[in-house]
Design a protein around this nucleic acid. Structure first.
Ligand SMILES: [Mg+2]
Ligand SMILES: [Mg+2]
Ligand SMILES: [Mg+2]
Length: 739
DNA sequence: ATCCTCCCCTAC
DNA sequence: TAAGGTAGGGGAGGAT
C-alpha cells in the first residue's frame, strides 16, 4: 500500500460523526504525559488555598487558609501535595472534550488515555489544501496538543498511525511531549527491533512462550515465522493477531459503546474466618456490594461465578504480609443465577444465596479461606426487562454518538467555549452527572465521571511510578521530592487522596534477583533479615516528620524518593533504606543549581515530637511490618503530645485519613486496622488507666493534668474509632476489630 | 460444530 | 510474584 495513496482501509463505522467511507484511516492514540504528576503539581494555581500547612511550612510563616501565592512569597520552594479529584476530573474532562472536537469516534482507554479516529478531520484539512504535501495528520495532532496545553498546561503525547496497534506504538516514540506519525513505509523498520511484549495485548507470558516455542521474542525474527507456527505456539487467535501485528496490520475498530459484560467484587486481603457463620456473613455482604454495583448501572445478571483463594497446604498459617493471602490455591466455579422466577437478578439475597451455595460446594474449612470473589456475568439491562431478552438495545435509537468517554458527552458541543483550568478553589461536591446519561455511560462500561476518581485511585503502580520517574528525570528534581526531602515545604492540601496513589509506589524488590520463580507467589524468604522494612530512626528524624502532616503522606513520598533513587542510581541495590536525602536529591540538585535557589532552609519545628526512640517496646509491638512507618509517626505524635491533649485538628486530619483508607478500597483496611491498633497500644501504655474513663472534663478551667491529657487522648481515640467504624460499616457492614 | 467451564493473560 | 482490585478476551478440553 502506498503511503501516498488513499488506501481504502477498514470501513468506517456507522456511529459517531458520519465519516466519509474512502478516506485514509487515521487513528491517534493520545496520552497525557504524567497525568498524575501534572494534574497534581502542574496546575496548583497560585490562588489555591492551603488547607493544612506542615510545621516546616509554618516555620516560614505559612498558615492554613493562606493562598498559595502568599505562601510562595514566604517560601518560594514551598511544595504542595496534590490531592484533588476535582482536578483530575477537570483534566480528564478537558482532555476528552478537546479530543472530541476532532474525532469521528473516540474510545476511552482510561482517564488519561484515548484512541480517536480523526480520518475525516484530516481529510478535511487535506481537501482544504489540495496542493500541499503537508502531513495533515501531524498538523491536526499539533493542534490538539496545543489546545490541550492551553487548556491544561500539560503535555499530551500523540501517536498517529493507520490502526490502533501502530498508533500505540507510535505513542511510545512520541513521548514525552511530542507526536509521532508511524507511516506505512516505516512500519517495518520501526517494528523490527521491538520485542513481542512491546505490542499491546502481549505480555510477559506470551513473550516467554514465544521464546520457548519459537526461539525468538524479537519481532524481526518472529516475522520469519509462518502464521501456522505462530498459531501453534500461541493459539489460533493470538497467533493470527501477532502475525498481522508484526506486519503492521490491525483490524480492530474503535469501540465506543461496548456494553458492560460483568460486575464483580473481589476481596483477597484480610480474610480470616473463624467459623462458617463469619464466612457466610461475609459472602452475603459481598453479595450486597455486588448487588449495589449492579443496581448502580441498572443491570441484572444470570450467571454468577465464585472465586476462592484457599491457603496453600504448604503455606504458613499466617501470610508473610499482614493479613495478606500468602501462597494460595485458587478455585473457581460458576452457576446460573436467577431469582425465584428464574429471571436475571441483581438482588443481594439471590446473589448471596448462590454464592454461598457455591462456596459450600467445596466444603472448605472457613479458616483456610484467604480470598473471595463474586462475579456476575450475562448481564441484562434491568430497565427494559420487557421480554427478558439478552440483547441490549443500544443502537436502535441512535443516541447521539455517545463517545466512550462518558464524562465528556454531557458537556459537549455547546458548552466547550472556554476550557478554563478549574479554579483552584473549586471544592464543591463532585459534579453529579445527570442520571440517565450516567447510567448509560456506566452500562457501556466507560470511565464515567463518577468512576473517575476510582479510576485514579486504582491506577496502576507501574503506570504512575513510571510517570514519576520520567518526570523526575525531566526536571532534575521534582517539587514532590523537594517536599519530602527538604522538608521545609510540606503543604498539605485538603484531602488526602494522593495517598492512594502514592501508596502504590512502594519500591520494588531488589533488582538483581534471580528471575526464577516457583509457583504462584514465590515465598517470601526474608524474615528478620528484611532490612528493607527496617527504617532507621535516624532517617525519620532527619525527615522531621511532624505529627501534623502526620499521616503517611511524607512517608509514602519517601518511598517514591526511594524508587527514584534506585532508578537513578541504576545498579542502585540498597536493600536497606538509605537516607536518600543527601545522595539522591540534594547532591544532584546542587550540582545543577549551586546556589541560585536557596539552600533548603532548615526548618525548625516549633515543638517537634522527637522521634528518638528506637522501635517499640518489645512485647507490645503488634505484628506489623509494613506499617512500621505509620506506627512511628503515630508514636511520635502521641509522645510529642504526652503533656498535652491532641489538637483537634490533628485528630480530624488523622480521622479523615483513616476514614478514607476505609472507604477507598481494600488496601486501606489493613493499614487502618494496623494504625488503630498501634495507637491503641500506645495509649494503653501511657494512659491505660483512663481507657474506660469517659467522664467529661471541664474544659474551661482545669489544669492540664495527666489525667486530663489521658482522657482527652482516649476521647480522641473513641471519636476516630467511631468515625472509622461508620465508614467501615458503610463499606463492609462491620466495624473494626482491634483486639 | 458450538457451547461451557475453568483457567490464564493482559491492561488499567 | 509485594499485594491488592476490575474487566475483557482467549485457550483447552469437555459437554452438548
Ligand atoms: Mg499517561
Ligand atoms: Mg495511561
Ligand atoms: Mg505489551
Amino acid at each position: 500500500m502506498k503511503s501516498a495513496g488513499f488506501v481504502l482501509k477498514s470501513p468506517s463505522r456507522a456511529k459517531g460523526k458520519q465519516k466519509a467511507e474512502d478516506v485514509e484511516r487515521v487513528i491517534m492514540h493520545c496520552d497525557f504525559d504524567c497525568f498524575f504528576v501534572s494534574a497534581g503539581l502542574g496546575g496548583a494555581a497560585s490562588t489555591s488555598e492551603i488547607a493544612s500547612a506542615s510545621y516546616e511550612a509554618r516555620a516560614f510563616g505559612i498558615k492554613n487558609g493562606m493562598s498559595l501565592r502568599q505562601a510562595r512569597q514566604l517560601c518560594p520552594e514551598v511544595a504542595t501535595i496534590p490531592y484533588e479529584f476535582e482536578r483530575y476530573k477537570s483534566f480528564s474532562l478537558q482532555f476528552y472534550t478537546i479530543l472530541m472536537r476532532h474525532a469521528d469516534d473516540l474510545q476511552a482507554v482510561s482517564v488519561d488515555e484515548a484512541l480517536i479516529d480523526v480520518s475525516s478531520a484530516v481529510a478535511r484539512l487535506k481537501s482544504a489544501s489540495p496542493l500541499s504535501a503537508e502531513d495533515f495528520s501531524v498538523t491536526l495532532a499539533q493542534t490538539i496538543r496545543a489546545q490541550m496545553k492551553q487548556a491544561t498546561e500539560c503535555e499530551v503525547s500523540i501517536g498517529i498511525a493507520e490502526n490502533i496497534q501502530l498508533a500505540r506504538l507510535a505513542t511510545r516514540r512520541a513521548k514525552p511531549a511530542g507526536l509521532f506519525h508511524l507511516k506505512d513505509e516505516d512500519v517495518r523498520r520501526v517494528l523490527e527491533p521491538l520485542d513481542i511484549d512491546d505490542l499491546h495485548g502481549f505480555g510477559h507470558s506470551t513473550r516467554q512462550k514465544a521464546n520457548e516455542k519459537l526461539g525468538a521474542t524479537n519481532l524481526g525474527e518472529l516475522m520469519t515465522r509462518s502464521k501456522a507456527q505462530l498459531c501453534e505456539a500461541l493459539g489460533k487467535t493470538t497467533g493470527e493477531t501477532l502475525y498481522k501485528a508484526i506486519r503492521g496490520i490491525d483490524d480492530r475498530k474503535l469501540e465506543s459503546d461496548k456494553p458492560r459484560k460483568s460486575v464483580s467484587c473481589d476481596i483477597n486481603y484480610g480474610i480470616r474466618f473463624e467459623n462458617n457463620e463469619q464466612a457466610k456473613e461475609f459472602v452475603y455482604r459481598m453479595a450486597e456490594e455486588v448487588a449495589r454495583r449492579l443496581d448502580g448501572i441498572s443491570m441484572r445478571g444470570r450467571l454468577l461465578s465464585l472465586k476462592v483463594l484457599k491457603r496453600h497446604p504448604n503455606a504458613p498459617k499466617e501470610a508473610p504480609k499482614f493479613m495478606g493471602h500468602g501462597l494460595c490455591e485458587s478455585f473457581n466455579k460458576q452457576m446460573a443465577l436467577a431469582n425465584a422466577h428464574g429471571q436475571a437478578t441483581s438482588d443481594s439475597k439471590d446473589i448471596g444465596d448462590h454464592a454461598w451455595r457455591l462456596l459450600n460446594s467445596w466444603g472448605f474449612d472457613p479458616a483456610e479461606l484467604r480470598g473471595v470473589g463474586i462475579h456476575i456475568q450475562k448481564l441484562e439491562d434491568s430497565r427494559n426487562r420487557d421480554v427478558g431478552q439478552v440483547k441490549l438495545p443500544f443502537q436502535a435509537t441512535d443516541r447521539k454518538p455517545v463517545p466512550k468517554g462518558s464524562a465528556p458527552p454531557r458537556r459537549e458541543i455547546d458548552d466547550i467555549p472556554e476550557l478554563v483550568v478549574q479554579p483552584a478553589s473549586s471544592q464543591g461536591e463532585p459534579t453529579t452527572a445527570d442520571a440517565p446519561a450516567q447510567k448509560y455511560a456506566d452500562q457501556v462500561g466507560l470511565p464515567s465521571l463518577s468512576q473517575l476518581d476510582m479510576e485514579v485511585l486504582e491506577a496502576l503502580p507501574d503506570d504512575i511510578r513510571k510517570e514519576l520517574e520520567d518526570e523526575y528525570q525531566r526536571r532534575s528534581h521534582s517539587p514532590m521530592v523537594e517536599a519530602v526531602i527538604t522538608s521545609p515545604s510540606k503543604v498539605v492540601a485538603k484531602g488526602l487522596n494522593v495517598k492512594r496513589i502514592t501508596q502504590q509506589l512502594a519500591p520494588k524488590s531488589g533488582s538483581s534477583l534471580s528471575p526464577k520463580k516457583s509457583v504462584l507467589f514465590a515465598k517470601r524468604d526474608t524474615p528478620a533479615s528484611a532490612s528493607a522494612v527496617r527504617t532507621s530512626d535516624a532517617e525519620l528524624r532527619e525527615l522531621d516528620i511532624d505529627p501534623d502532616v502526620f499521616v503517611v503522606l511524607p512517608l509514602e513520598m519517601q518511598r517514591e524518593q526511594l524508587i527514584m533513587a534506585r532508578h537513578t542510581k541504576k545498579g542502585g541495590v540498597l536493600t536497606e533504606r538509605r537516607l536518600v536525602i543527601k545522595d539522591t536529591t540534594r547532591a544532584p540538585r546542587e550540582r545543577k543549581s549551586p546556589h541560585p535557589t536557596k539552600p533548603p532552609p532548615k526548618a525548625h519545628r516549633p515543638r517537634p515530637p522527637m522521634l528518638n526512640r528506637q522501635g517499640k517496646q518489645k512485647g507490645e509491638k503488634v505484628s506489623f511490618t509494613e506499617t512500621d512507618d505509620v506506627q512511628r509517626v503515630i508514636e511520635a505524635w502521641v509522645e510529642g503530645f504526652e503533656k498535652h491533649p491532641p489538637n483537634q485538628k490533628d485528630v480530624n486530619f488523622f480521622c479523615k485519613f483513616l476514614v478514607q483508607s476505609v472507604e477507598f478500597s481494600d488496601a486501606g483496611m489493613e493499614k487502618t486496622i494496623a494504625v488503630m491498633r498501634w495507637w491503641l497500644v500506645l495509649l494503653r501504655r501511657r494512659w491505660g488507666a483512663h481507657e474506660e474513663d469517659q467522664s467529661e472534663v471541664d474544659q474551661a478551667a482545669q489544669r492540664v493534668t495527666s489525667e486530663v491529657v489521658g482522657k482527652a487522648w482516649w476521647k480522641a481515640f473513641r471519636e476516630v474509632k467511631g468515625r472509622v467504624d461508620v465508614a467501615a460499616r458503610k463499606r463492609f457492614g462491620g466495624t473494626l476489630a482491634l483486639t
